[in-house]
């Protein structure tokens, strides 16, 4: 069985979502090729469990536009006779994978959380309120992989061969114009060991400084609920939930977050959940291991002091 894993584009080292997608590939069992679109092909050769790195570093991939990347992936998948094409369920993977699936005329399987066999997978539906087991009848399985559900492959120890593949050219449909990336020295949300998240209860973006201070003490990433993002307290990439990022850190501290289903969908697989909320009836307490009914403006500075 030949498996093609598409790497998360990177300008510096192999990204965590690539490693967890390789973790899912390992569950399938078979020979794994890793397609690196853009720079970083040589670096990826040391990842454990990869037989071959396919490097497509043409100028048309300077920015991973779906219109250009999808035909490449479809071609590589066809030419190599791959039965599985796995993407990380990141905004990159979610953007490109369905385009590939349609080019191959197959029904994609989104956001898998378990591999049962070569054609059967588990995936959450309805904001994680149900888990479906689905079986694909398509000749090629195009899959996106939920990173929190699989163990990451080791970044070192492998010695894959690196083969360069020619690009499929610029489709001439789209252009990259610019980006506004959130700058942060903190760990990435989806791979952080600890996350401190704030909700509408924070009242303003300025008050997030309090969470930053706590996060700095704990080496944590900072996240947020949709309400906090909608209100403009923090940028969109902080959003945890059904339609934001899915996280499962060892410790998740929810501050001033009520615990709507859509938020829980993104964090309820965390190992330990702490909730700080002044409303003792808040649904977040139903999933919290440790709940503190308190005014966050008092409790958070105290907590920051106490963990120091």
């Amino acid at each position: 069985m030949n498996i093609l894993v598409i790497a998360e584009p990177s300008t510096g080292g192999v990204k965590a979502p690539t490693l967890t997608t390789l973790g899912a590939a390992a569950k399938l069992g078979g020979s794994v090729s890793l397609l690196v679109v853009g720079p970083g092909g040589a670096e990826a050769a040391s990842v454990a469990g990869v037989a071959k790195v396919l490097s497509a570093d043409g100028a048309e991939y300077a920015h991973p536009l779906a219109e250009n990347v999808a035909p490449l992936v479809a071609k590589v998948a066809k030419d190599g006779g791959f039965g599985h094409v796995l993407f990380p369920a990141t905004t990159f993977g979610k953007n490109v994978a369905p385009r590939v699936a349609a080019l191959l005329d197959v029904q994609q399987i989104s956001d898998i959380t378990a591999v049962e066999s070569a054609d059967t997978f588990q995936r959450p539906i309805y904001a994680g309120n149900a888990i479906a087991t689905v079986q694909s009848s398509d000749p090629v399985k195009v899959v996106t992989v939920r990173g929190t559900a699989f163990e990451a492959a080791a970044a070192t120890g492998g010695s894959a061969s690196v083969e360069s593949v020619s690009g499929t050219g610029d489709a001439g449909l789209s252009k990259f114009v610019g980006q506004e990336l959130t700058k942060s020295e903190r760990p990435e949300l989806t791979s952080a060991r600890v996350i401190v998240s704030g909700g509408r209860g924070m009242q303003s973006g300025d008050n997030f400084v309090m969470l930053d201070a706590l996060a700095d003490k704990l080496g944590a990433a900072v996240g947020a609920s949709r309400a906090a993002v909608d209100a403009g307290f923090v940028p969109n990439d902080y959003q945890v939930g059904q339609t934001g990022k899915i996280v499962a850190p060892e410790l998740y501290i929810a501050v001033g977050i009520s615990g709507a289903i859509q938020h829980l969908a993104g964090m309820k697989d965390s190992k330990v959940i702490v909730a700080i909320n002044k409303d003792e009836e808040a649904p977040i307490f139903q999933v919290a291991d440790y709940g503190l009914v308190a005014d966050l403006f008092k409790a958070v500075p105290e907590l920051t002091q106490a963990v120091g």
């Binding site: 539906i125 087991t133 689905v134 694909s136 291991d289 440790y290 709940g291």
Partner: peptide, 30 residues
């Protein structure tokens, strides 16, 4: 349809936790 749904189940339930009385108690537990 190309996908067949074999079954749909509830996700594993989280064990309910406890309420702590103070920040100090919380830090102790953590």
């Amino acid at each position: 349809p190309r996908l067949k749904t074999l079954k749909v189940v509830e996700p594993p339930k989280r064990q309910g936790g406890i309420k702590v009385g103070s920040v100090e108690e919380l830090v102790g537990k953590l």
